[in-house]
């Protein structure tokens, strides 16, 4: 199906520095695609280019095509706000809105998008919290501040917040880097659960994590996509010498 994302000749800059070089990559629909690489390799920039979040940073620039549902999200006339509505994102550090309750956090995207109907909000919030495997833990404290949850719960709250607007793709930028192992395990379970309905792209600095959750994995180095393929193949029979060095820990 056309649900995936096709990236062609993607280049990105921060001011004068050229941080992504000619990236070509196809993200399969309803699967998990992992992006790995050492820090500073451009993997976060890459994922932020997929929903036009890169350009939010002053001085940042993108050239190339990113086809989602057959449409180039960078073609002139495309509204970045609409793109982000369809392609949600979860960030490295949990960032619930501190002034909002658990419920309001999840409802934020809907409310700000103009949904007023209380019944619709209730239903969508509950569904998103179930989907983020958080419902049982927070159903009695929906009116409490979202910032009062534990780190892992906060991150799942952010996932629920992203899911509530019903995106087609979910981008996750090192979603577990601020979490303990138990919370990490829950998020990983969740990712496997979510991929039945969603296309997921996850950036991680943790190779084991990529091996556990991803169907396909791409290895980035110095702003280039060195190798991309099915996860099992990339980790067992890497084609490129640099990939092999990295996954065997002989790198840098």
């Amino acid at each position: 199906m056309a649900d995936g994302i096709t990236v062609t000749k993607l280049n990105a800059w921060f001011g004068p520095s050229h941080v992504l070089h000619d990236i070509d990559l196809a993200v399969a629909p309803r699967a998990v695609t992992a992006i790995i690489g050492p820090s500073g390799c451009g993997k976060s920039t890459f994922i932020r280019c997929l929903n036009r979040m890169h350009e939010v940073v002053p001085g940042a620039r993108v050239v190339g095509t990113v086809l989602q549902e057959g449409q180039d999200i960078y073609s002139p006339g495309v509204d970045p706000v609409e793109v982000r509505r369809r392609i949600g994102m979860v960030f490295q550090k949990p960032n619930p809105f501190p002034t909002m309750t658990v419920f309001d956090n999840v409802a934020a995207g809907l409310r700000l998008g103009g949904v007023r109907d209380r019944g619709v909000l209730n239903e969508r919030v509950e569904r998103a919290l179930h989907a983020a495997a958080l419902w049982e833990e927070v159903k009695d404290r929906l009116g409490k501040p979202g910032a009062g949850l534990s780190g892992g719960q906060q991150q799942r709250l952010c996932i629920a917040r992203a899911l509530a607007v019903e995106p087609e793709v979910l981008l996750m930028d090192e979603p577990c880097s601020a979490l303990d192992p138990i919370a990490t395990a829950r998020i990983e379970e969740l990712i496997l659960e979510l991929k039945r309905d969603l296309t997921i792209v996850i950036v991680t600095h943790n190779m084991q994590q990529a091996a556990r959750v991803a169907d396909a994995t791409g290895f980035f180095l110095l702003g280039e996509l060195v190798e991309f393929g099915p996860t099992s193949q990339l980790f067992t029979k890497p084609v490129d010498k640099r990939t092999e060095d990295y996954i065997t820990g002989r790198f840098g």
Binding site: M53, V81, F91, G109, L112, G113
Partner: peptide, 16 residues
């Protein structure tokens, strides 16, 4: 990060 969270939900900047 809060601003980005808002933008990533597909909310226009002024509303964020």
């Amino acid at each position: 990060s809060l601003r980005e969270a808002g933008l990533a939900l597909g909310v226009p900047e002024w509303k964020v």
